Amino acid sequence: MSETEIVTIRCLQDNYAYLLRANRKTALIDAPEATPILAELSERGWSLDQILLTHHHNDHIDGVKELVDKTGAKVIGAKADQHRLPDLDVAVSPGDTTDAAGLEAQVIDVSGHTVGHVAFYVAEAGAAFTADSLMAIGCGRLFEGDAAMMWDSLQRLNALPPETLICSGHDYCTSNGAFALSVDENNTALRKRLDAVAAAEQQCAPATLAEERATNPFLRAAALADSVGAANPAEAFAKLRSMKDRF
């Protein structure tokens, strides 16, 4: 396995961008704003080779033009979203693989938050860059897709190895944690995770898929189905997502 490094960069108010370093190359996943990303690259003495985009929302793409102008990085994004993304050098579709810092990145359909949203799973780095699909103790709001679509997307991500690092797009730990406790108050793993984050003993994100499985109410839909009056996990997920929207 190539030596890899993942650097989390806080952008805007609560966005995350990620640098993936391997093979003396660097890939960026999402570009909320250029300034903190350029600063991190400069501090580390890294060039930028690629920018991988998960979806079209401005808080994930607004830094692309400046980054390309200053680094010459190639831009990779979903073919289905090409009409509303910055100019792409490589257009990919779910099921494809693409290059990320010399590593193979699998393209996964995670529609729901938007239609055409993709995640990138880099097995050799042990990480999935999920943006606004599966998030730390939560999942993205359904702006374009529906609950069934997002549920299917979460199942695809939940099939990854449990040690996979879930690199999501925002720090919504406080609000997501409060909601999770409201529907899963007896979850000791959840309380332990939130206590550790509050004490600055760990970051809320990234976190492993195993940790999300134990603490994320949207991955625990089966366990919470009875308590929310749902007949099955998919229905429980839809109810939980609706409850979170009103929380």
Rank of each mutant, 00 (worst) to 15 (best):
N15S: 09
A80W: 10
C173V: 13
N176G: 10
R241P: 02
A221H: 08
N158A: 15
A22S: 08
A234P: 05
G95K: 10
T71V: 06
L67A: 06
L157H: 02
A234L: 11
I166A: 09
K79S: 13
H117T: 11
D14K: 14
D109K: 10
A238C: 03
R44L: 02
I29H: 01
S182W: 06
T208S: 13
L52D: 09
T54S: 12
R141K: 14
N15D: 15
F218V: 03
L67C: 08
R44H: 04
L142Q: 08
R24E: 15
L154K: 02
L194N: 11
N187A: 02
N216G: 08
V92L: 00
P86S: 07
M150I: 09
E201G: 12
A223Y: 07
I6N: 08
Y16H: 15
L190M: 07
S168C: 15
S168I: 05
H56A: 06
S42V: 15
A207F: 01
T26H: 04
D132M: 04
I51E: 00
A225Y: 03
M150W: 03
A128K: 01
R220I: 04
K65I: 12
T97K: 09
S93Q: 15
D184V: 05
R193C: 14
N15G: 04
N158S: 15
T97M: 09
A91C: 02
G126S: 07
I166D: 11
D14T: 13
V68R: 11
T208V: 09
E3N: 11
L41F: 06
R191H: 15
L19A: 06
I29Y: 10
F247H: 12
V92G: 05
S2M: 13
T164F: 00
S153Y: 11
R44A: 01
L19P: 08
T54H: 05
G138R: 12
A34D: 06
G138E: 06
T215C: 14
A123N: 12
C204I: 11
H83S: 12
T98G: 04
P94T: 04
A105W: 06
V110C: 10
A189D: 15
Q106F: 07
L19S: 05
N158P: 11
A234W: 05
W151F: 11
I137F: 15
E124N: 00
W151A: 09
